[in-house]
Design a protein around this nucleic acid. Structure first.
Lengths: 210, 210
DNA sequence: TAACTTAAGTAAGAGCGACTAACTTGGCAA
DNA sequence: TTGCCAAGTTAGTCGCTCTTACTTAAGTTA
């Protein structure tokens, strides 16, 4: 796929991506410097420019992979939770949340202010794929239950809610104003509501209480 | 309140804040440089340090004012929409969205990755106040309708949804995957759902316009 | 009104990060 | 063996943040 096991360093391209991910975790999406990543990879600050156009292109690569990971995690969650069921759709939402919490810096880059990043073809496509998954699940669910509701509209609502929950959890805003909130439980509670289910046994929340 | 109409410049403190706001609008939360703000204010790059500890403190000031504006806008919206009614609570959500869209860079700073900013006392307090408003309105609504639901839990759900909608709209994510989505309409549709109103004669709008 | 005090500015520069240009190294193919 | 050229290095530019030491001018006091 990409140049591998090359001359001097071995695979500086991957080494820089790995170092950058580490630094993103340690210092957030802004604290990261290319120079720091170079130090970690053991090369001079000019070396990256043989592999990347500029600093941003490293981030683009990480974001693209992030979308792939997110899509994969969601697919896995829905498969385990039960495709086309409330439990499955809920699991998908919780998977989204867990991705955000597990890789906050990457999530912020994926949905952050650097809109240039998402203009990259590959990134854009993976992003769309994530939503398409949700739409498909909702459509399956609706079909099974004879609902006439617009699957896309419902999927957008679910995405919106789960994205909001992920952002607020990640930024520590819940911590500040509603300490002890069980976000996974909240998603499990709200998912049926947004699917238009008025009273049904809730999908059991996997989230532990604090 | 603050030093005013002083010696040389007049009021460099306010001039720098104004310049910074302009630059945030023009270049986003990252594109902004202190040096640029200085050029606009017509002073050297060392001058700001007589008024601010560092670059970040200017942003803190802007964020603090942002929370105040947001709270005021929400209060106004709910007052006009009807306190303790679905219409009022919906108006509040739409007001939140409009703030985000109207001042994207400020909104991003307010809910962005720079968590240090929100540690500032004043900022923290204004932020909490915003949510308290929502809780109060939901509580009033519930009381009026004899609901027993937990007002705080419902308020958190509403906040979560509206925040998600604002973030995704602002980042252009809806544009990308659901062109033409009417976000205000979506908020208006979902608010009653999250308030626990069972949809009866609500037309299942596809939520699109234009 | 002259001298004093001090807030608010300037000039100069240290330090660092992004990026560039020109040079060097070493694996590989002919 | 030679020569190519990918992938490094060295050295340097530029712009940004922030500091230090100096200067300017507003208001105060004698």
């Amino acid at each position: 796929m990409r140049p591998k096991k090359r001359f001097h360093h071995g695979d500086l391209r991957e080494a820089l991506i790995a170092a950058t991910r580490e630094l993103l975790i340690e210092h957030g999406p802004d604290g990261f410097t290319l120079a720091d990543a170079c130090r970690r990879a053991g090369v001079t600050t000019a070396a990256p420019y043989k592999h990347f156009r500029d600093k941003q292109q490293i981030l683009e690569e990480i974001v693209a992979r992030g979308f792939e990971e997110l899509a994969a995690a969601n697919a896995k969650a829905v498969a385990e939770g039960g495709p086309g069921t409330i439990a499955g759709i809920t699991a998908m939402g919780i998977s989204y949340l867990e991705f955000a919490v597990g890789q906050p810096a990457v999530f912020r880059l994926m949905f952050g202010h650097k809109s240039e990043i998402r203009k990259v073809e590959q990134v854009d496509e993976s992003g769309k794929q994530c939503l398409k998954h949700v739409i498909d699940e909702v459509a399956t669910y609706s079909r099974k239950h004879g609902h006439t509701a617009d699957a896309e509209a419902i999927a957008l609502r679910l995405w919106t809610f789960v994205h909001g929950a992920s952002s607020l959890e990640l930024n520590g805003d819940y911590q500040r104003v509603a300490r002890g909130l069980d976000v996974r439980r909240m998603i499990a509670d709200v998912t049926p509501m947004l699917l238009g289910v008025t009273s049904e046994k809730r999908a059991p929340s996997r989230g532990r209480k604090r």
